[in-house]
């Protein structure tokens, strides 16, 4: 691994993704991710964020999806349509949406599965690292994952991914269905992981406000296309993003139901 400079690490070049040979979800998405950065993908439901992640991690295949056009290169090698086994071994690990733990395995066994890409090597130190990031897991290590709370599960699946020593971590909606305090906690940990491990992170989020606080760069997707991109702080100031994703109207006040009838801003990119 060459650590010098912030070269382009992952590059999606105009990719199209089609499910079951008929449903086109991504219509030419290009994005690039630099090393050691947190890049956030924003967009409403059905914009194609999850599909973009799955195209990178190779998990389209089990869902009968395919990258039909364009190319994905990771660290200089083309990886579009490779099998998930190959891609994970290159160091790309995806944390799936909606926390998918192994319900009948204990917390610790769940974490051990994370070593699948390199299971011959010792993992004791990694376990300690994960427990250090997520102290809440320590006291539940022997209990079945199926009986843990949502926050613990989110920590578990992220810890599980960390066990694989990812070079690129794909996080799909880590804040889904969690209490605001827990969300803040999770995001703090994401930032710490990025800073301490140097892990490059792609963060897909509905919670645009939180995401833009920790991300360096952001993309906005809509209808299977990237419609806007920019440095995170610039995006945060953009009036369109404010209106549609941050819930702040052009005047700077939070929108209320009082002016619901007011003229709704047109999305400029449409």
């Amino acid at each position: 691994m060459t650590e010098n400079g912030n070269g382009i690490f992952l590059q999606l070049n105009n990719i199209s993704v089609v499910y079951s040979d008929v449903i086109q979800v991504l219509k030419g998405v290009s994005l690039s991710v630099e090393k050691h950065r947190i890049v956030s993908l924003l967009g409403s439901n059905g914009a194609g964020k999850t599909t973009t992640l799955k195209a990178v991690s190779g998990l389209l295949k089990p869902e009968n999806g395919k990258v039909t056009d364009g190319s994905i290169s990771f660290d200089g090698a083309a990886i579009q349509n490779s099998s998930p086994e190959q891609i994970t071994r290159k160091g790309i690990i995806q944390v799936l949406e909606g926390r998918q733990p192994f319900k009948y395995l204990t917390i610790e066994e769940n974490l051990k599965v994370g070593t699948a890409t390199r299971w011959t090597r010792p993992y004791k130190k990694d376990l300690d690292m994960v427990y250090d990031y997520f102290p809440a897991l320590t006291k539940r290590r022997k209990s079945l994952a199926g009986y843990c709370s949502g926050g613990e599960l989110q920590m578990l699946v992220m810890g599980r991914a960390l066990m694989a020593h990812p070079r690129l971590l794909l996080l799909d909606e880590p804040s889904l269905g969690l209490a605001p305090l827990v969300v803040r906690e999770i995001f703090r940990i994401i930032k710490r992981i990025n800073e301490e491990q140097g892990t490059t992170i792609i963060l897909v989020e509905q919670n645009a406000n939180m995401a833009l606080q920790i991300a360096h760069y952001g993309y906005v997707m809509e209808n299977g296309k990237v419609v806007m991109e920019g440095e995170a702080h610039a995006l945060k100031e953009n009036p369109d993003v404010k209106e549609f994703y941050l819930g702040v109207s052009a005047g700077g006040k939070t929108r209320t139901y009082k002016d619901i009838k007011s003229y709704r801003r047109r999305k400029r990119w449409l």
Partner: peptide, 20 residues
């Protein structure tokens, strides 16, 4: 443990690089 994880949740196992 990998075998049990696949039995439990195949997609998740796949996402972690378990050779399903």
């Amino acid at each position: 443990i990998f075998m049990r994880s696949v039995a439990d949740n195949q997609t998740a196992a796949l996402s972690l690089g378990v050779h399903v």
